[in-house]
Amino acid sequence: MNDMRTLERIVNSEAIKISARNVQVHYGTTQAIKDLNVDILDKTVTAFIGPSGCGKSTFLRCLNRMNDTIESCRVTGQIMMDGANIYDPRIDPVQLRARVGMVFQKPNPFPKSIYDNVAYGPKIHGLTRNKAELDEIVETSIRKAALWNEVKDRLQSPGTGLSGGQQQRLCIARAIATGPEVLLMDEPCSALDPIATAQVEELIDELRAQFSVVIVTHSMQQAARVSQRTAFFHLGSLVETGETGQIFTSPKDPRTEAYITGRIG
């Protein structure tokens, strides 16, 4: 672990954006998440690390209720966002997902133009009144996703024609365009080459100024590079959570230490 810059990073804000209490997730009869409690801070990058199959993606998908699309999945417990339980029956998951954006493991741009990819969210949520406003949202979103210079001359060409890294940044731009407050990323770099990974990581660091970012990652180096807080998952439970520097240098739990030093995982 040569990159310990994280230690010097200041956690911008201590405001709690999302707090999960006693969350249990079942797929049919098998339990994927047990008794999970965690707080996710605003304007902070939180990394979820842990061995494969420990429930990181499952928990991430709870935060924007994408788990609703899996028929066998049942979530119990409480996940509060800005004082409201997102599993309250009165909450419309469609509305929630506009405020909690998601970037998937594999870049999945729509088979439409770059422009339409980014404009789709604002259009369906009625965020703009005219074409000029829409153009502006599209441009600022693509700029924030650090993709503008590469695509500004070919906004009308298909999004699927971009390289893997560009596609992933396009997906980030698409998620940003609806003006979310939280951005969930499930191993966003696992399908990317090292250069594209570096670009996306840099981008994540910039995004922290406006959003609360939660990133699932396989790579501990990546967690250390981009996050301020880290949560370590093991076999469906949250083992330890804290500031990234502390987790990586002086973990409290022996399982965390074992994972970080490469003995489990």
């Binding site: 998601m102 998937f104 741009p109």
Partner: peptide, 9 residues
């Protein structure tokens, strides 16, 4: 593609 669409609301 479905995930992408649902994911942005």
């Amino acid at each position: 593609i479905r995930d992408a669409a649902l994911g942005i609301g």
